[in-house]
Amino acid sequence: MFETLAALLFAHALADFLLQPAAMAAAKRRPVMLAAHGGVVLATALLASGSLHPALLVLTVLHMATDYAKARLPARFATFLADQALHLATLAAIAATAPAIWAGGLWSGMTALPPLYALLAGAIIAIRAGGFAIGQLMQPWADQIALDGLPGGGRAIGHLERGLIFLMVLGGMAEGIGFLIAAKSVLRFGTVREEAKLSEYVIIGTLASFAWALVTAFATLALLAHLAPLGIPDFTP
């Protein structure tokens, strides 16, 4: 079951966060765009699992139905969370009811592949999906803040900090996160000390970003515990 879940989770992360252009995501009210995204979802599930199991078609239909409903709701943080929660619940349900998807697939003999899928899916969700989530969370306040930094600089910082946190937790160096918080606080201090709104904006965004990365990292560790070991040594001495 967990091998199937890892493969489907990796396929989902690819389809939703790496292979879905912004134009496609914004136009899923149109049947053609929704069908195109559904095609990507099905293709990634087929390739990741190496299987032609009919449950993957069911997965695709349920994914499209969820996206159809989401496209008719406001683009908010709560909507994003609800959408992803439904997708994850669908993945878990398919993996539980059709656990043989992986065992009957072309890649079933490659025991290192499911944990690698879990690791890559966790990284994509921590870094890329986290960017979308935090962006939507902060959107209600974004118009009230004057940001004069580099174009896309805040997004890049967020990606880097979530990536570092993900690596620290999986490498057994979670205590290093405190150093990351301290370093960011020092670097941001001169920018926000005289502007209350900007200070609060940065604090909320930073804490949300850190929390997203931590939850994703520990969830990834929980999934990896049920899979074959990858053989990656611990970072700690």
Rank of each mutant, 00 (worst) to 15 (best):
T216C: 07
H87N: 11
P115V: 08
A98Q: 05
G163A: 05
G176D: 09
F218R: 14
Q139A: 15
F189G: 00
L150T: 09
A126S: 13
A123M: 13
L180D: 05
I177P: 00
G154K: 06
F210D: 01
A196S: 09
G130S: 11
A156E: 07
Q136F: 13
I177G: 03
I181N: 11
Q139S: 09
A208N: 03
M138R: 02
A93P: 05
A129G: 00
L88Y: 07
G158F: 03
I204A: 15
L167W: 06
G178H: 09
I177A: 07
P114E: 11
A82R: 11
R162N: 15
L170N: 02
L120C: 14
A156H: 09
A118R: 03
Q144E: 14
I165E: 06
I127Q: 10
A89C: 15
I145F: 01
T90S: 09
A156W: 13
E195Y: 08
I181S: 06
S185G: 09
L214E: 01
A126R: 05
A217S: 10
A98E: 00
A126P: 02
W141Q: 13
D148F: 13
G149M: 10
V169R: 05
G105V: 06
S108E: 10
S185L: 13
G190K: 09
A146N: 05
E200M: 14
T97Q: 08
Y201M: 01
L160K: 12
A96Y: 10
A123T: 08
L147V: 15
V202M: 06
Q144Y: 09
M110H: 12
E195I: 04
P99D: 06
A174S: 12
S108V: 08
Q84A: 10
A213K: 02
G176C: 00
I125Y: 11
A217L: 08
I165Y: 05
A156V: 13
L116E: 10
A126D: 02
A85F: 11
G109D: 00
G122D: 03
K197D: 12
S199D: 04
I203A: 10
P115S: 12
P114N: 01
A219L: 15
L164F: 05
T191C: 01
S209T: 15
G152R: 15
P140Q: 07
Q139K: 10
V169K: 03
T216L: 09
L214G: 01
E161M: 09
A196D: 12
A103I: 03
Y117R: 02
L170C: 10
T206L: 12
G171A: 02
G149K: 08
E195M: 10
I125P: 00
W212Y: 04
A98T: 08
I127H: 04
R193E: 09
F179K: 08
G153Y: 06
P151I: 13
A219N: 10
W107T: 07
I125A: 04
A126L: 00
L164Y: 04
A92L: 15
M168G: 00
A92C: 14
L187S: 06
L167D: 00
M173L: 15
P151H: 08
L86N: 04
